[in-house]
Design a protein around this nucleic acid. Structure first.
Lengths: 110, 110
DNA sequence: TTTATATATCGTAATATTGCAATAAACAAA
DNA sequence: TTTGTTTATTGCAATATTACGATATATAAA
């Protein structure tokens, strides 16, 4: 117990859940919003911008990177991060389809 | 440690994260998809539909209900569940705004 | 009242997540 | 080479999540 039974769900359901999970923490939401706002690659800054310790930010960045939503590039001693545009667009299609499910409910007993 | 520092993030960032978190499990994704597909309130069924034990489904339903995304109505011995249309629409606005952040990146060093 | 059916809650074990101090690694500058 | 700067990794404690058996609750049917 304690572990999600991914095998009983469809690939798409698991995909949606994985994307949603990574958005399920305000620090990662904040990181992504900052990367969008800055509108260019950002080296450093993120630790100062968000009020969490450097190892914590590094860990959140790793998760975003593992899902392919951001990419990083070593630039001297620092690493520049930015949104992975293509992957973000692909994710958006999956998530938007889920959110936009049609609701023309016939009966409403609730 | 082990607990999210919600106080250092904006209300909106926390809201996005909370919605995303509830979508971050394939069982809840599956439940919501089923409610949309059935297109009416459903009493029972969910336990048979998804391959998880009854207490587990009940727990997932509770989380969806707590966030206001579904509502339940007691109908004899069973409980009927359906999507909470208004709240789903409100959630959709928040999440879509997050997903649709503009990306006209000036530089792309990554 | 007794029995059957459906859902919720409790308790608990297994696993995952969050956060950070300490430390490592990688590179630039002196 | 030494020093400083930046990011990643390790290890660990605190907390959260997932799943389910056992049981409680509520109503319907016999």
């Amino acid at each position: 117990m304690g572990l999600t039974k991914t095998e009983i769900f469809t690939e798409k359901q698991n995909k949606i859940a994985l994307f949603a999970k990574v958005f399920g923490h305000p620090a990662r939401v904040s990181i992504l919003q900052h990367l969008f706002k800055i509108d260019t690659c950002v080296c450093g800054d993120l630790v100062n911008e968000i009020g969490l310790a450097q190892p914590t930010i590094s860990q959140h960045l790793k998760e975003l990177k593992q899902l392919g939503l951001i990419k990083g590039n070593v630039e001297g001693t620092s690493v520049c991060y930015c949104i992975h545009k293509e992957n973000w667009a692909a994710m958006k299609i999956v998530m938007t389809e889920f959110l936009n499910q049609d609701l023309t409910q016939k009966q409403d007993c609730c």
